[in-house]
Design a protein around this nucleic acid. Structure first.
Lengths: 199, 199
DNA sequence: TTACAGAAGTTAACACCGTTAACCTAAGCG
DNA sequence: CGCTTAGGTTAACGGTGTTAACTTCTGTAA
């Protein structure tokens, strides 16, 4: 009859929340434990150490992001349509689930050094989907890109820029937010489609 | 006759180096102090606290980046030429001075929350120069961009992506590095110049 | 010459941190 | 009934940022 949320999941949720609310630096095992009403050492029953806990958090977020994008993009058969769906859903995810989205970029740097490459690659399904979509578009003569792997990286960076501006509320107050988002995505997309120079 | 490098500057240099070499997490006041052959508390004679020390480090890096870009871009009178010079020198700086460049992005997130906005804005001269250059190009009918502030942000993000790939040696081994850099910059630039769609 | 002020450093201590080792306790099972 | 195991606990380690109180040197004014 009880709720029975496993402690492991509680820890993850509390950590994610604390991370979003108070930042990485003030996140401590003891603080997490206190919120879960448990001793600090109990966390070590489920996670090797603090880094591993953070990695799990990242992994979860990346997994969710991938699933989110796949759900919207995979059904599209037209490669350009799929390309657009990927970019659009990436931004949507960031705006709808900032707690999860920010973890992907916030924690990084430091704990990331020891983040096992294998897992990283495995989790980046969305990125790989983007690469494949670009490759397909190139084959169909709809895009001109000589290194899809690199182009995908660049697109990711651009989209992250868009999401960041909005999440950090750095948007000029005169700019309409939704319009900004739509136009930004459109610009990212258009930047990669086949066109000719005027002169 | 002695060298007489002020302790304050020594601390900054040691910190920058440790940060680059061992990452943010393992950077401690005591470790810095030991390398400077001084007690840990001496650092507090020159910096309010650890955050402030990091802010100073960031500020220095951003200042250097700005100067680097200005030196190469300001002489150009043609707005498109200036635009190209900005993008090119941004990437150059990142590759030539990775210790300084990485600090700008590495530390961020956490200490950044309390980073005074004023200083931040003041230091981003390079960013502002880019915005002005875009605005000028738009006035001259050479670019089609409706929010230069946003476009500049996007360009920054793209360039950062390029630098990151190279610095982290994530570049596919079959790709020629210099060619990659040149083409990437070119793509960023072209993405903002006036063109028409083929169909 | 002496008295004093300020600069540049020190030591000792506090509260907090991640992590380990050793211990406890209840549940399930042969 | 006894044993194992899962899921916790407490106590302790060495390390951390930071503070308060102190020393020690250097220049200057009386």
């Amino acid at each position: 009859m009880s709720e029975e949320v496993p402690l492991r999941d509680q820890i993850l949720e509390i950590s994610r929340h604390l991370l979003y609310e108070e930042g990485y630096k003030s996140l401590s095992m003891r603080k997490i434990a206190k919120q879960a009403d448990v001793s600090a050492t109990s966390i070590y029953l489920y996670f090797e150490n603090k880094d591993h806990l953070l990695h799990t958090l990242i992994e979860e977020s990346v997994e969710d992001l991938s699933r989110f994008i796949e759900k919207r993009a995979l059904p599209k058969t037209d490669s350009i349509e799929r390309f657009k769906a990927i970019t659009k859903s990436y931004v949507e995810f960031g705006l709808q689930q900032p707690e999860k989205y920010e973890i992907i970029y916030k924690v990084r740097s430091d704990s990331m050094a020891r983040y096992p490459k294998e897992k990283f690659r495995k989790a980046r399904r969305a990125y790989e989907l983007l690469v494949k979509t670009i490759e397909e578009s190139v084959r169909q003569g709809l895009m001109e890109v000589d290194k899809p792997v690199v182009a995908a990286y660049s697109i990711w960076a651009q989209l992250h820029g868009v999401v960041s501006v909005v999440l950090n509320k750095r948007l000029d107050s005169r700019i309409n937010q939704e319009q900004f988002i739509e136009e930004s995505i459109e610009h990212v997309v258009q930047g990669f489609l086949i066109r000719t120079t005027v002169s």
